[in-house]
Structures are given as structure tokens and as C-alpha cells.
């Protein structure tokens, strides 16, 4: 029994080392790849705003409509924020 226990413990130690090792290697590779990816694709952020900017003069005639949109967006954001705080 004692012998058996120590062999199982040894196996557990083995699992600890291998397990933590693999977890770190796995997530470490992921860190590297995310950085690599961000290097190429992170600059894409302004894209949606860029699309919006030239659009603006065209929509200007419907000022009231856009105001409504802005109000809706802000109230949605406030609602979301409050919901988050509540939880």
C-alpha cells in the first residue's frame, strides 16, 4: 500500500510538472501569436469611424433623425453600464 501510494504520488508529481509545463507552453505560444497577429491587424480599428466620417455630410439633412440615433446610442450605453453595475 505504502509502495503503491508513493508510486501514485510520483505519478501526480509528474502530472504537475508536465501539466503546468504544457499549460504554460500552450498559452505562451498563444501570447506570441496574438502579438504577431496584433502587429498585422491591430491598425484596423479606425476603419468603422473612417467610414462614418464621409457619410456624415450626406446624412446632414436628416439632423433630427441622427439626433435620435445618438440619443438611442447613449441611452443604450447608460442602460448597459447600469446593468453591469447592478450585477
Amino acid at each position: 500500500m505504502e509502495n503503491n501510494l508513493s508510486s501514485v504520488l510520483l505519478e501526480a508529481a509528474n502530472l504537475l510538472v508536465v501539466g503546468m509545463g504544457v499549460v504554460f507552453v500552450f498559452l505562451g505560444i498563444l501570447i506570441f501569436l496574438i502579438k504577431l497577429m496584433s502587429h498585422f491587424f491591430a491598425g484596423e480599428i479606425p476603419a468603422p469611424t473612417k467610414v462614418n466620417v464621409p457619410n456624415r455630410p450626406a446624412v446632414k439633412s436628416s439632423g433630427a433623425h441622427q439626433d435620435k440615433k445618438v440619443v438611442a446610442a447613449i441611452s443604450a450605453a447608460v442602460h448597459q453600464y447600469r446593468q453591469d453595475k447592478k450585477q
Binding site: A12, L15, L16, G19, M20, V23, G28
Partner: peptide
Amino acid sequence: MLLLGAAAQAGIFATLF
């Protein structure tokens, strides 16, 4: 931050013992 997610898994392997 992935390193933190990895480190916290030590709880799993330590509990094996």
C-alpha cells in the same frame, strides 16, 4: 494576461496530491 490564466491552474495540479 495569459500567463496569469496559466499560473492559476496550479491549483488543479497541486490538488492531485
